[in-house]
C-alpha cells in the first residue's frame, strides 16, 4: 500500500499571540489517498478552511500549527522553510477558492496567467507552455481554447473562470487539489458542471481531492468519504454512503435535515442554544444537542467500528 497523498495526524492550529492563543483546530486526523475525494463539511467557523490553509502553509502571520503533523506523499511538511513552501504550493498541492472573480488578475489574459503558472515550476519554454495551456483549457471543458486563452477574465462567465482556475491548479500535476467552497459563488447549473469536472479530473489523473463545503447533499454526490467538522474537531467521518445513509452524530443529522430538497417538507432546525454548555471539557455540541445528558459533560472521542467514526456518546443508530 502506498502512502496517502495527504495525511494529517492530530493537527492543531491556533491563532493570535503566544500568550492569548485561540485554538481553532483541535487534533484533526485525516488521510486522503491518491485519486480519492474527501469532503470536509461544516459551518463557518468550524475550522474546515483553516485546516486547508494549513496544508498550503498559508495561515498567515497570526496562525500557526501548535501540534500534530502533516505528511504529503509520505514527506513531512509540518514545518517547511519558505522556499520549500513555494515548491510545495503549485507542484504538490494546488488550491481553488470560492470566488473566481478575485482569484484571477484582471490585467492579463487567462492564457498568459495559465502560461505563467506552467512556467513557474518546470519551465518547458514559452511555445510549449502555450501549447500546454490550450490543452489544459480543453481538458477543463472550455471550447475554442485558442480564442479563450486570448481573453481577459472579465470576458468570461463565473463558471468559465472557475474552469480556468481549475486548469491553473492542475497545470503542474499536483498530488492534491484543495477546493474551498469552489461552487458557492456559482449558479446551480454551473455548480453541477464544476463538480462533474472535478470528479472527472480526479478519476483520470489520480489527483487526490480535498473538497470543502457546507452542503452535505452536494458532496455526497461525488465524494468518496466525508468528514464533518464542528468547532474545530471532526465529529463524524466515514464513507459518503455511511454518513448519508446512517448518520451517527446529531450535528450531521442536523446538516442533512437542513438542506431543502424537493419533495420533502422543510424541517426547522434547532433554534439557537438550547442549554448552557457545562464547561470546557464538555462535548462542543452540548448546547445545541437535543440528546445531551450528563454523559456529555465529558467530550467524547472519535470512535466506531470500521471506517465510520463518530464523536458522540449517544451515537444515533
Amino acid at each position: 500500500m502506498t502512502a496517502p497523498a495527504l495525511s494529517l495526524t492530530d493537527l492543531s492550529i491556533a491563532f493570535g499571540p503566544e500568550i492569548a492563543a485561540r485554538k481553532v483546530v483541535h487534533g484533526v486526523t485525516l488521510h486522503v489517498m491518491a485519486g480519492e475525494k474527501l469532503a470536509i463539511v461544516g459551518e463557518s467557523g468550524s475550522g474546515k478552511s483553516v485546516t486547508a490553509l494549513a496544508v498550503m502553509h498559508q495561515l498567515g502571520r497570526a496562525g500557526r500549527i501548535v501540534g500534530g503533523a502533516m505528511r504529503l506523499d509520505g514527506q513531512d511538511i509540518t514545518s517547511l522553510p519558505e522556499s520549500a513552501c513555494r515548491e510545495l504550493r503549485g507542484r504538490k498541492v494546488a488550491m481553488i477558492f470560492q470566488d473566481p472573480m478575485t482569484a484571477l488578475n484582471p490585467a492579463f489574459t487567462v492564457g498568459r496567467q495559465l502560461v505563467d503558472a506552467i512556467r513557474s515550476h518546470d519551465d518547458p519554454g514559452r511555445k510549449a507552455a502555450q501549447q500546454q495551456a490550450e490543452e489544459l483549457l480543453a481538458k477543463v471543458g472550455i471550447d475554442d481554447p485558442r480564442r479563450r486563452s486570448g481573453q481577459y477574465p472579465h470576458e468570461l462567465s463565473g463558471g468559465m473562470r472557475q474552469r480556468v482556475l481549475i486548469a491553473m491548479a492542475i497545470a503542474c500535476r499536483p498530488r492534491l487539489l484543495i477546493a474551498d467552497e469552489p461552487t458557492t459563488a456559482l449558479d446551480v447549473t454551473v455548480q453541477a458542471q464544476v463538480v462533474a469536472l472535478l470528479r472527472d479530473i480526479c478519476a483520470s489523473s489520480g489527483i487526490a481531492l480535498l473538497f470543502i463545503s457546507h452542503n452535505l447533499d452536494l458532496v455526497a454526490e461525488f465524494c468518496d468519504r466525508i468528514a464533518v467538522m464542528y468547532r474545530g474537531r471532526i465529529v463524524e467521518s466515514g464513507s459518503a454512503e455511511a454518513i448519508f445513509g446512517a448518520p451517527r452524530h446529531p450535528y450531521t443529522r442536523l446538516l442533512l435535515d437542513a438542506v431543502p430538497r424537493p419533495g420533502r417538507p422543510l424541517r426547522a432546525a434547532a433554534p439557537a442554544p438550547l442549554a448552557e454548555s457545562p464547561g470546557e471539557g464538555a462535548c462542543d455540541y452540548f448546547s445545541r444537542c437535543r440528546l445531551a445528558d450528563v454523559d456529555c459533560h465529558v467530550r467524547p472521542a472519535l470512535r466506531g467500528a470500521g471506517t465510520h467514526l463518530s464523536a458522540c456518546w449517544r451515537s444515533l443508530t
Binding site: 471543458g141 472550455i142 471550447d143 462567465s157 468559465m160 446551480v188 447549473t189 455548480q191 453541477a192 458542471q193 462533474a196 472527472d200 452542503n215 452535505l216 447533499d217 452536494l218 455526497a220 454526490e221 461525488f222 459518503a240 454512503e241 448519508f244 445513509g245 442533512l256 438542506v259 430538497r261 424537493p262
Partner: peptide
C-alpha cells in the same frame, strides 16, 4: 429542466449524467 436536474440530491444524485457544458 436543467435547473431541477442540477439540484444536489446527495446519494441519490451519484452517477447522474454530467450536464453538458453550455456554449455561452
Amino acid at each position: 429542466e436543467r435547473l431541477v436536474a442540477a439540484i444536489p440530491r446527495g446519494l441519490a444524485g451519484r452517477n447522474r449524467p454530467a450536464d453538458p457544458p453550455l456554449s455561452e
